[in-house]
Write a protein that binds this DNA or RNA. Structure first.
Lengths: 343, 343
DNA sequence: TTGTAAGCGTTATCAT
DNA sequence: ATGATAACGCTTACAA
């Protein structure tokens, strides 16, 4: 209580290795060995050290350790705050975090969250990452044009992404089979007799938007149909608007594959307002399988992707990467069609 | 490229203060001063140092700095992963994170995310926090019975919470006026002529659940009515179930105040299934103002709380706390009644 | 105004 | 199996 407070109110004299060593009557080196689980310490000594540790409530200082080991046991999740999926009720973000957190926790690593909201934030993040705060970086949903990937590319920091490809750099990534999922949706629509199948696509500056459109186009082409596309930004509102456009342009459409459930939810409303029955007049399939699918009217058929698992896999890869291992450039997780009542 | 790889693949020889000093022809101390913005450095020297910094791409090493300053510039957000609000489409979690992230970013601090999922995770977190990794802790939605607050209480780590009161310890907190919000909802119901007003309460082991029930009871008592309560766990499903109970017990109820929008959404479905018209037969008011309120049938009247602002305020307080300042034991943010069509 | 040097709390090398 | 001791990269008295 008499110690100089420099910054913060960390008053109590910190317990160090030295203190433990003194109490246990051994050297600092020995305490360090015990604390780090070395097998070359005589059991008796080990025990007395452990007792001293417990008595004193010793916990190794992170900074000191990290200074010498050159590793922090922390990993950064960088994501663009602007990302509409992050702050809607899309559940992408919570699910991702849950997966990351689970797997990181199992490895006794920590997650630091970096939101790249604006230019200032971007500078801060870059500085932070380069300052050796973390052992690796998980890049989520970076947009095309985002400068960070480029910067990171020139670094020796391990990076993993969930995007198929960023501007010029390409990091190994872990994604879901969006192309396949979209194609499966269209295939189902075709298989159930739909003939004029439109799509509401997502933003075309990120894989989630691009790939789902690719899958749609591919399958439409395969069946000799022609593409009918409107574009939204993954929000409900944009879904409503896009659906109106579609209806105006192609009044005779009988199905829509929508690149996100939220947009599909919006589309459902437009359809209802326009007096079209779903699925009788027009079938709708979304993408993501968020909770609202079960509560919409009618319940929404969709493509399910396992974001929690994606998070876990992302972690497994970055962990390997930061051990110097080489990992597969791409891991693609499967998706599945879940049928409810809208198609 | 010839350097020993110890852990990680951090190969490239790290640029240190020393390197910059050498290049700029000054001492390490001077470089340090420049980097830390000291005003006592001659402009010419300052410039040449800055140039060297840029040329070399120097970024101060976090661990080294933190070792001597005893501060990390990071703050932990601890939240119980079990928390249903975290992984539903409740938006509490994303909004909180957004607020924290914004305000922390403005202060050039970082956020580390700690999910307390199980006992093992809990031990890890405790260890992590005690290891001096962070300058302060933000405790979100700790449940009653959670052991962490107690542990933290015996520490000199600054802690701020969003719960009015934890088991035995009480940290300063930043909350919303849940009691007042619930009371306002009931008051509106009474004011519009409702007479048999029930409630679906949330879990009674956390402030969010407790306070909303208190507000309901208080206002019901004030108007001489009698309480009719069922309890859920903040999920839609529990809302459906609770509403069924209510209907069974009190078939003549004409209004329900529901402690969360998700539960209210569930209740709406039950009501509809039971052939009760909303708001004609029974009025419904929720709590939270999540996005779904605008899309439910009918759109849901609710109590709006500004979680982003709560996050920001939480940060402001923990920042002050970790500077050794004393902060007000409680900051209570206002809520507001937003009327849509369900009441 | 600038430099020198003493730590900060660990881990790791090298003797013993 | 254990103990000195030298880093690790930085900040900060204190001296000049």
């Amino acid at each position: 209580m008499v110690f100089g407070v420099r910054k913060g109110s960390n008053v109590r004299p910190r317990v160090t290795l030295e203190d433990v060593a003194l109490r246990a009557g051994v050297s600092r080196a020995t305490v360090s060995r015990v604390v780090n689980g070395s097998q070359t310490v005589k059991p008796a000594i080990r025990d007395s050290v452990l007792r001293a540790v417990k008595d004193l409530g010793y916990v190794a200082n992170a900074a000191a350790r990290s200074l010498v080991t050159r590793s922090t046991n922390s990993y950064a999740l960088v994501l663009p705050e602007a990302h509409t999926r992050v702050f809607s009720d899309d559940q992408f973000f919570p699910r991702l975090i849950r997966g990351l957190s689970e797997e990181l926790g199992a490895a006794d690593k920590q997650l630091v969250l970096l939101m790249s909201s604006d230019a200032a934030a971007h500078r801060r993040i870059e500085h932070y990452l380069l300052g050796g705060h973390v052992d690796g970086v998980i890049l989520a949903s970076a947009h095309r044009g985002d400068p960070l990937p480029g910067t990171l590319g020139g670094t020796d920091l391990p990076v993993i992404s969930n995007e198929r490809v960023l501007d010029n750099v390409d990091f190994p990534y872990v994604g879901v089979d969006a192309v396949g999922g979209a194609a499966a949706a269209v295939r189902h629509l075709v298989g159930t007799g739909r003939r004029r199948i439109a799509t509401i696509a997502g933003p075309q500056d990120m894989s989630a938007g691009i790939d789902r459109l690719i899958g749609y186009r591919r399958e439409i082409a395969r069946t000799g149909g022609s593409s009918i596309v409107a574009t939204g930004d993954f929000t409900r509102q944009s879904g409503e608007v896009a659906m109106r456009e579609l209806l105006a342009d192609e009044p005779d459409l009988d199905a829509v594959f929508v690149a996100s459930d939220l947009m599909a939810h919006g589309a459902l409303r437009t359809l209802q307002a326009a007096g079209r029955r779903v699925p009788d007049d027009v079938a709708v399939i979304g993408f993501d399988d968020v909770e609202i699918c079960q509560y919409s009217d009618p319940p929404l058929s969709t493509i399910r992707q396992d974001i929690v698992e994606m998070g876990r896999t992302l972690v497994r890869q970055i962990l390997r990467l930061s051990c110097g291992e080489v990992v597969e450039p791409a891991v693609v997780l499967p998706v599945s069609l879940v049928l409810r009542q809208s198609a």
